[in-house]
């Protein structure tokens, strides 16, 4: 075996080989440090992204990721795990980031009665993109290691659809007899509603709460409630869209084109008594929001294009590898 040594020539070839490989990888947008997490890519959409039609063909442009969910068993209350996977897709149109979630749930659950819980879903971003936040977690105590959560609830979707603050007691219990509600118009007796608790507000404009947290138990309303979306249940599956403007209110994670960050997903099945920490939850995925904007010859990450790119990358990587081998293994020049 020849002893390996680095001549001047090889020294030049080695960094060159690495440079080729690195450029290829950067073009493909893959950060080799994060490559062990599943990746959700949000390409720039070509065409309008509908906020009312969740089955629009624009979503064919977004590669889907089947994200594994598991029970939350890090902190009390523990539970969930009944939903095994959620399919995630993402798009942006230069103005807004759209995330589409889809999962199987045989019953459409709204929080109606004392023992009934509603279906829900959420996405979670580190508040400071790039700051590592432990998985399955609600952020960390340090100020720059918090999380931003968008939580959609089926019951709020219903509120908007029915234009009601909540299902009336009379509708829930038709045989009930009440002769009088004193002070019915005095809001103070609607307690939580009167203090503008997001869970109770009478006229919802969005079915999604914008929340922040800095570890378990600290979840709080974000100052702006500017996350919107829509959820539809069809044939035993929920499909939920969540979206927000990419322009960045202070203190919220930057989700603008070109951003690389993380996202985690959670789903609650009301029929199983899921709520709070009792949820089916994923660990963090990588989220890449594509750099180019729509209509400017941006990269379209369809399946065919992805395959072509992979072949091209493989070819280029092979060339780069040969360069490296040559630099290292070629017998030293005299």
């Amino acid at each position: 075996m020849k002893r390996l040594g680095l001549t001047r020539g090889r020294r030049a070839a080695l960094p060159l080989g690495l440079l080729v490989a690195a450029v290829l990888l950067a073009v493909a947008g893959v950060n080799p440090v994060r490559s062990q997490n599943p990746l959700l890519v949000a390409p720039a959409a070509s065409g309008k992204v509908s906020t009312t039609n969740l089955y629009s063909s624009v979503w064919d442009q977004a590669p889907s990721v089947d994200v594994t969910l598991s029970m939350q068993n890090v902190t009390n209350p523990m539970g969930g795990g009944e939903v095994a996977t959620v399919r995630a897709r993402a798009l942006h149109d230069g103005k807004r980031l759209y995330i589409l979630l889809e999962w199987g749930d045989s019953t459409r659950d709204l929080t109606l009665g004392l023992t009934q819980y509603g279906d829900a879903a959420a996405v979670e971003f580190p508040r400071t993109p790039g700051k590592t936040v432990p998985s399955f977690c609600m952020g960390d105590v340090a100020p720059d290691r918090g999380v931003n959560i968008w939580q959609w609830r089926a019951v709020w979707q219903e509120d908007i659809a029915t234009k009601q603050a909540s299902a009336s007691i009379q509708a829930l219990h038709p045989d009930m007899q009440v002769d009088l509600y004193p002070f019915r118009n005095d809001p103070v007796y609607m307690t939580a509603r009167d203090v503008n608790n997001l869970v109770s507000i009478p006229a919802r404009t969005t079915p999604i709460d914008n929340l922040v947290a800095n570890q378990f138990g600290t979840l709080t309303d974000a100052p702006q409630q500017d996350v919107h979306g829509l959820g539809e249940w069809r044939d035993g599956r929920w499909r939920v869209l969540l979206y927000r403007d990419m322009t960045q209110p202070a203190g919220m994670p930057s989700l603008s084109p070109g951003t690389t960050t993380n996202v985690a997903l959670a789903v609650w099945d009301g029929a199983r008594g899921n709520r709070d920490g009792m949820k089916s939850v994923s660990s963090f995925l990588d989220l890449q929001i594509a750099a180019r904007t729509a209509g400017g010859g941006g990269l379209h990450w369809g399946a065919g294009q992805t395959l072509a790119l992979l072949i091209g990358m493989f070819g280029a990587a092979t060339v780069g590898l040969f360069v490296l081998i040559y630099a290292v293994v070629r017998p030293p020049e005299r």
Binding site: L112, L114, A165, I169, M190, V199
Partner: peptide, 17 residues
Amino acid sequence: AEECPYKKPMFRTTTRV
């Protein structure tokens, strides 16, 4: 409501708290 042994916290379906 689940863990109070005396069952004195009570859920209100109108305000959902």
